[in-house]
């Protein structure tokens, strides 16, 4: 052994990494299970570029600059272009990058599972979301009832569904319309609502206010809401989905609005992806969903933070 291997910091690093072994094995098996699920269902696995010229302009998602372009914050725009070109069922497991996102459950570089299906809507995706998670549990040999940080989780289907309106009525100090009016929606959601969501059953929070959905279709049946849902398990936001907006005029208007808001807040204004906007005219009715792979590993390995389920955090590099 070289003498360097005896210094305390390298010993500590070896210990930290060795301590993650069980989680990293679970992580690898989980990714295999995801592939198994989607390939069995005749989904095509795709890979789209990480380095792109024009990320989707969303007010609160900041892309990292790279070589004259940006690292993608999600594979959404490229995958939708494939969808529009006649790929009806596609999935991708990829790294995504978001500037400044670092917390107990956030990494600036993380792994997303994203999948799209044509001729469907967000409600059908809720079913498929239940199916993929239950399939993963079976493949990993995990029981549908498990302990997470001292509380019971029950993954047996069907899972719960709760509208954003109902969630505010049940858990929040202010009603939804007031929270929106005074700009406290995110704060109330994060601190008053989220910690209660997804015990013991996972819950789909759905029907988001239309102002909070840059790329989703508005509901035909319920005015003022977008066909968007988020999946919560044990207080952890695990997935975001919507019925895709396929109206290119409407999409352009929403992008412009987000860009204007970004400009107003002094944030980088990304170029418009004209190729994406053009492709929307060919896009079939469809729905898509992004699921945080790191967070699913975190839940299934009974970790309350994200760090132990990745080999290296940014601070450990």
């Amino acid at each position: 052994m070289s003498p360097a291997s005896n210094d305390p910091s390298s010993l500590l690093e070896r210990e930290t990494l060795a301590g993650k072994k069980q989680n990293l094995w679970l992580r690898a098996a989980l990714v295999q299970a995801i592939r198994h699920f989607f390939t069995e269902r005749k989904y095509l696995e795709v890979e789209t570029p990480y380095l792109i010229p024009a990320p989707a302009p969303e007010l609160h998602i900041d892309a990292i600059r790279a070589d004259g372009g940006f690292l993608h914050t999600s594979p959404e725009l490229c995958m939708k272009r494939l969808l529009a070109a006649g790929y009806p069922k596609i999935f991708q497991i990829c790294r995504c990058f978001r500037q400044g996102e670092r917390g107990r459950r956030h990494l600036p570089e993380f792994t997303l599972l994203e999948w799209y299906r044509e001729d469907t809507n967000y409600l059908a995706l809720m079913d498929e979301c239940e199916e993929v998670v239950v399939f993963i549990l079976e493949e990993l040999g995990l029981p549908p009832l498990m302990q997470f940080q001292g509380r019971t989780l029950d993954f047996q289907r069907p899972w719960n569904r709760l509208t954003v309106q109902q969630a505010f009525e049940r858990y929040a100090s202010d009603p939804l319309d007031q929270a929106l009016a005074c700009g406290r929606f995110d704060e109330i959601l994060a601190y008053e609502i989220e910690p209660s969501l997804g015990f013991p059953n996972p819950v789909f929070l759905y029907q988001y206010p239309s102002s909070l959905a840059a790329l989703s279709r508005l509901s035909k049946d319920t005015p003022g809401v977008a066909e968007r849902f988020e999946l919560y398990v044990a207080g952890v936001e695990l997935a975001n989905a919507f019925s895709e907006l396929t109206d290119s005029v409407e999409q352009r208007a929403r992008f412009e609005k987000e860009r204007a808001k970004r400009k107003e807040q002094g944030k980088t204004v990304y170029p418009l992806s004209e190729k994406f906007l053009r492709s929307l005219s060919y896009m079939p009715e469809s729905a898509g969903i992004a699921l945080g792979v790191d967070r699913l590993v975190m839940l299934l390995s009974n970790q309350k933070e994200i760090d132990p389920v990745v080999a290296f955090t940014p601070e450990e590099l």
Partner: peptide, 14 residues
């Protein structure tokens, strides 16, 4: 300090 960010929402720093 704790960073959090509800889905598509703004970053919050408690």
């Amino acid at each position: 300090f704790q960073f959090t960010k509800p889905g598509k929402g703004q970053a919050l720093y408690r």
